[in-house]
Amino acid sequence: MQPKKIGKDALAALFDRIKDEYEVYAPAGREFFERVTSFHEVELSRRATAKNIFFPPEQSLFKFRRMEGGYDIKMDGMKRKVALFGARACDTHAINMMDRYMMGDIEDEYYANIRKNCIIVGITCNEPFKSCFCTYFGNFEPCFYDIWLTDIGEHYIIEAGSRAGENIINSIQCEDASREDMEMKMKVIERAKEKMSIPSKKFDASAFSERYHSNIWHEIMERCICCGKCNFACPTCHCFDVFDTINLDGSGERKRKWDSCHFYDYARTSAENFRKERISRVKYRVYDKFVFSMERYGMQACVGCGRCYDVCPAEIDLREIIEVMA
């Protein structure tokens, strides 16, 4: 389908068209995507993490109820049609990574139920945030989308990346984008890319491996308070804890909730705490992003979105770490 353009005031119509068919989630004032029902709530200029939509901070795995001779178990988790409205390119790369964690050889049903019925309506970043370094990993362009928007001034370029996206675009009022419009889009992209502050050295995962025992880790460890905020903000951190709750009548629920590899108890067992030392936990997160994910999934788990830096009370910036390591 040829790229189209729509006037800025037509975006509400696009939103409404999507809302008719999907539960819509968008950046709307917080750090995470939220349920929105009207276009006015959407903050397109805001960047938010979308992983909570597929993988909620806390979620029921199943409910159980005592009955004669055993239990009755009911799985929570229904298929839902969901739209992300206002995702960024880094979000698409992050979702791509999450798909590998959650829908690889073994499929996480809860994640898949939403992910497989989800459309992504994204938008090009005209103005990078100060923590952004996605271009460093070649992630400025989205890796998949249903509909993609680019603000070129008076209009948005609107492009379809799937049949679903195409159908939606065909059902709203828009005109073909001209050559000039598309040139403008390229210009917007070039300008944004140039503004990004990225590490000066080329990325080299093997350099990370070689410096595993480097003293720099001690300096970073001294600063990190192991609060886990970076993990919660990160669109590719997927670790969770599982726990049961029980009611007075013996019914209850098995649930999972986000966990952080920075927490003291994360690798604790009845025999040993396998990452007792803070430095082992601080290193683990970074190596899991840059080295281990590459070995296992053929993909770096860090997409360069900088959200971990935004939330870190110790202002730990992966760009600095890359600068010394790579």
Binding site: Y101, I106, F240, V242, A267, R268, A271, E272
Partner: peptide
């Protein structure tokens, strides 16, 4: 032996 929360390579704990 490691801390395990899923047994299926999803929860991350045993890595």
């Amino acid at each position: 032996e490691r801390n395990m929360k899923c047994g299926m390579g999803i929860c991350g704990h045993c890595a």
